[in-house]
Design a protein around this nucleic acid. Structure first.
Length: 329
DNA sequence: ATCCGGGCTA
DNA sequence: TAGCCCGGAT
């Protein structure tokens, strides 16, 4: 078995076990000063308010995958008012879910969130699981989201590693301004986690918040940083060596299949009834092969479906959903 | 025009 | 581990 597979085995099987030795060489992060800063500086995000349920926190984490807070906030507020529980979400049709997702982007997330709601309602008694290994079995829940829910919704002392945390650790602890994902990231953070459950939860939230509003990727506000000790500052803010670490490729958007998919979904979201192929075709005229490819991928992803008479609609649009059945009674 | 981000598949 | 998925901000 390769080292790669050995690492995966470790990660899946021992997620709650404590740290292997890491290669942390820089100063540890002072949890006291970080958590104190968090208490004063954190943004008042709606999913951090008291009384927000585990499901509602999970919904926020789905929406925050790849998407900035400012765009998520209004959608999340409407969403949880409309579908406050997994079973309420499951009872909605996938098409309504896709519409409510609006233009948040990556609509496969909306579909997975709906599938996740169906699974939790059907197999977990409408209660979001509280352990990482069970959370990882849910559709759309990966290493980050599983630990974020375990930590922020249930107060579990588990390392939560997103791109913000990775960047803060890379700078403050390792003294480098680069943060490629590594198999040891989880161990690195586990090693820094305060012993107390409650403090550990605050510490993880604070680490993410620091990366989000101070230790930002492009223009870090080091003047506002609460850390008295930072390896990156100590090293003189070194920049990445372009020779051994070429800048990561930036994903294009304009003119890509992704943009075409967005245009096609716009048409379907706007229509309460199935549309003709022609109505979709006019949404992208410049490259017909690309348009066909995009439509095909939406069908494969299960976001769009074709009706028996050859029209196109959002997935599940015509299905008899439980909610509609109830309304008819 | 470039930046930003987690899950999944192959 | 590379490459795909979105759209708004800057």
């Amino acid at each position: 078995m390769s080292a790669f597979h050995a690492d995966i085995g470790f990660e899946l099987g021992m997620t709650d076990i404590l740290p292997e030795p890491t290669d942390i060489v820089g100063p540890a992060i002072d949890s006291g000063e970080l958590v104190a800063w968090f208490g004063a500086a954190q943004r008042p995000l709606p999913w951090r308010q008291p009384g927000v349920s585990a499901w509602q926190i999970l919904v926020s984490e789905f929406m925050l995958q790849q998407t900035p807070v400012s765009r998520v906030e209004p959608i999340w507020l409407d969403w949880i008012a409309r579908w406050p529980t997994p079973s309420a979400t499951a009872a909605a049709g996938p098409a309504d879910v896709l519409r409510a997702w609006g233009k948040l982007g990556y609509p496969r997330r909306a579909k997975r969130l709906h599938e996740c709601a169906v699974t939790i309602a059907a197999e977990h008694d409408d209660v979001v699981p509280d352990d990482v290994d069970t959370l990882l079995t849910l559709p759309g829940v990966g290493a980050y989201t599983a630990r974020a829910v375990a930590c922020f919704a249930y107060g579990k002392r588990v390392p939560v590693v997103d791109t913000n945390v990775r960047r803060v650790l890379s700078r403050a602890v390792h003294g480098r301004d680069e943060a490629p994902a590594r198999a040891r990231d989880l161990d690195d953070v586990a090693a820094l986690l305060p012993d107390d459950d409650v403090v550990a939860q605050r510490f993880s939230a604070a680490l993410m918040e620091l990366g989000a509003i101070v230790c930002t990727a492009r223009a870090p506000k080091c003047g506002l940083c609460p850390l008295s000790s930072c390896g990156w500052r100590a090293a003189g803010y070194p920049t990445r060596d372009p020779a051994d670490a070429p800048a990561r490729k930036v994903q294009k958007y304009a003119g890509t299949d992704r943009q075409v998919r967005g245009r096609l979904l716009d048409v379907l979201r706007a229509s309460a009834t199935p549309v003709t192929r022609g109505a979709l075709d006019v949404a992208w005229l410049s490259d017909t092969a690309q348009r066909d490819r995009a439509l095909h991928s939406l069908l494969v992803d299960g976001l769009v479906e074709q009706t028996p008479d050859g029209l196109f609609a959002l997935a599940g649009e015509g299905e008899p959903q439980e909610a509609r059945a109830n309304r008819r009674r």
